[in-house]
């Protein structure tokens, strides 16, 4: 009998057996993904590493330069300039943007009427393309005829040249960026706030805690996973800023708004130095990775996951 049973099993065709195998099904479901990961993600990641060691345009690779591209970046004043600009942008926008959106989320979390309406308004800049946003702000920032300087003039203040001034161009872009990100971060904070059980506040009230101490000892610790996540996303996103400078200033005046990604774009697709551009992209990748790791390392000091 066991022999017969075995024969019956062998008679089942390979196709039938495949159809019954979970492994085959699993592979069928992830096959497109594996292809995509190889061709569109990990393949290009390795290729970019290889390209960062050569010199060449899009027609041919001219020569192997080893770490030469990285050395060149180290000596490249424009690269340092873009790195300083981008760091300044991140330091200037992330904490301010997070504080403002947290305040707004706490306000939105009071049981008020018309929340859905306000939420839609706050979210408007997020769904609008960066190009349209940049153009409308570029017009508002116009030194002579822009509405911002007109309002400042009515208040008796002589407004700066904004995008035309090396000193004010980057702050102008940063103000716009904080304005644009407010609704998105507010929404994430609001979701976090609504996840805090009401009992914690009731308990704190019974213990005699006022509004500030409730914020400090209940809201802030229980919201810390959300805060942490927004900080990570904002820093990663901030280092990849590109569109605002590309549309509004092209990196000028005097490279005051040149960001790392704009420089990578210019080297890759305007001066066609793809080896050098790949090296710059890898340096950016490394910076983002290190900053993310530092934030993950530091989270044990202030992020509380237990409820």
């Amino acid at each position: 009998m066991p022999v017969a049973g075995r024969r019956a099993y062998e008679r089942v065709s390979l196709w039938e057996r495949l159809k019954r195998s979970e492994h085959a099904y699993g592979f069928a479901f992830v096959a497109p993904l594996i292809f995509g990961l190889l061709v569109f993600t990990y393949g290009p990641v390795l290729a970019a590493l290889g390209l960062s060691f050569v010199e060449g345009d899009y027609i041919s690779i001219s020569r192997w330069v080893g770490l030469g591209n990285y050395g060149r970046a180290f000596r490249d004043e424009l690269f340092w300039r873009s790195l300083v600009n981008t760091t300044y942008y991140v330091i200037g926008t992330v904490p301010v943007g997070m504080a403002l959106s947290l305040a707004l989320a706490i306000a939105m979390n009071q049981e008020l009427r018309g929340i859905v309406f306000y939420r839609a308004i706050f979210f408007l800049p997020t769904i609008t393309s960066a190009v349209a946003i940049s153009l409308m702000w570029a017009w508002m920032y116009n030194p002579e005829f822009g509405v911002i300087n007109s309002i400042l003039k009515m208040l008796g203040i002589k407004g700066p040249m904004w995008l035309a001034s090396p000193r004010w161009a980057l702050p102008a872009i940063m103000i716009m960026s904080v304005w644009r990100g407010l609704g998105y971060n507010m929404l994430l904070f609001l979701a976090g706030l609504q996840g805090i059980p009401k009992e914690f506040y009731e308990a704190a009230e019974i213990d005699g805690a006022g509004a500030w101490r409730k914020f400090l000892h209940v809201t802030f610790p229980l919201l810390s996973p959300t805060t942490f996540m927004i900080a990570i996303l904002s820093v990663i996103g901030g280092f990849q800023v590109f569109e605002y400078s590309y549309v509004m200033t092209r990196g000028g005046p005097l490279y005051s708004t040149l960001t790392v990604v704009l420089l990578i774009y210019q080297r890759a697709f305007e001066t066609f130095e793809m080896g050098y551009a790949s090296a710059l992209a890898y340096i950016l990748f490394f910076i983002i990775l290190v900053l993310t790791l530092i934030q993950f390392r530091g989270q044990s000091r202030w992020v509380h996951y237990e409820l």
Partner: peptide
């Protein structure tokens, strides 16, 4: 393992893959 590899792909900035993708 494949799931972790997939999630790790989210960490890679688009600027890194941009140039080889263009070549391809």
């Amino acid at each position: 393992t494949l799931f972790i590899i997939t999630l790790a792909a989210m960490m890679i900035p688009g600027q890194v893959t941009m140039i080889p993708m263009f070549l391809l």
